[in-house]
Nucleic acid binder design. Sequence first.
DNA 1: TCGGGATTATGACCGTGGTCATAGTAGCTG
DNA 2: CAGCTACTATGACCACGGTCATAATCCCGA
Lengths: 198, 198
Amino acid sequence: MTAAEHGPRERMVFSAAQLIRRDGVASTGMREVAAHAGAPRGSLQHYFPGGKEQLVNEAVGWAGRYAGKRVARFLAALPEPTPSGLFAEMVRQWTDEYEAAGFAGGCPVAAATVDCAESTASTREAAAAAFATWTGPVARALTDMGVPEERSTALATLMISSLEGAILIARAEQDTRALTTVTRELGPLLDAAAGPAG
Amino acid sequence: MTAAEHGPRERMVFSAAQLIRRDGVASTGMREVAAHAGAPRGSLQHYFPGGKEQLVNEAVGWAGRYAGKRVARFLAALPEPTPSGLFAEMVRQWTDEYEAAGFAGGCPVAAATVDCAESTASTREAAAAAFATWTGPVARALTDMGVPEERSTALATLMISSLEGAILIARAEQDTRALTTVTRELGPLLDAAAGPAG
DNA sequence: TCGGGATTATGACCGTGGTCATAGTAGCTG
DNA sequence: CAGCTACTATGACCACGGTCATAATCCCGA
């Protein structure tokens, strides 16, 4: 989407995230990333002397920051912010994509975790950090909506867990059913936690 | 666990599932599977003429049936069956493993989905089937516990989504926090759906 | 114009891994 | 024992892909 601009380095990180979420880390080649970014192959070793591991880690970090920033946008888009409304927006990003562009891609952080959690410590840590930079804004938003502070992080984790799992199922089934289901079933629970006043 | 017995063919399928859930599909080699199963390399092309794709698909199918069968055991282990109790058992299987053996492995169905959903149609279908053979028994159990039939499948999907996502986060963080969190936060919702009579 | 750093260009190396070809062995049946 | 089928053994092929080595540009300040 927002691709052509920015330097080649940033484009490669972005492309890496795109390809990883489609094919997984192991099946994504460095040459492929450069080609997808429209960047010269020689730039790979120049910008990423740490090799594939570095590129993957930066792509995961980028994805985490992207997800974290999106939370603010979702909140801004809501007429009146509620936990269920936020969650619905988070899920809707995926249903929209799947209905518009097909089920080609999943979450790059999930892909990195599946492919690298055991083999590459630094990537596992990058994934953990990405989940944290995603959970943080969600939890903060919940607190602002009236959710008791000690439950905000827990509910944010539940939201992201459900979303990630539903993404997996939706991709496997090529059907957004799982995504719409978790939205519907989890919404009341989230709003109830914001207190009786709504 | 139940490994040494059974024929070499079944052992290879089992080993494939083990290795896939640890390293992902792409990073798991055929030779590695044979070695892990203590089976001769020559048996690979004999039992799996369809190559890696066939082996992976059978491993995914095996994992789905395994998960489905476990539901019955969980129910049997509960003094009195409740939705939250079933979910707690499902999650506990993972917390137990992670605490006892470390965070080396995730769900093989999730791994297959991440690595093959876009590239290999048959494996994607195998993953969808695995999720279905897992969701079915869970939904049936919920119905037996008093959950209205039209909500049972939805809640089963929510349970499995949350579990899958929590597995991802737990592996990334190397911490069972996400798993215990989804158990705690989702339990009351599940029991409430079983009707006021509990 | 002349460095000199930043960037790009390319070819080669080398390990990995899925698959194939070809043959060997084992065990049962007639 | 002959023969057939099931299984095992092993080496080779070939594509892919991450990385390295080496050099060519490009571009800006002095």
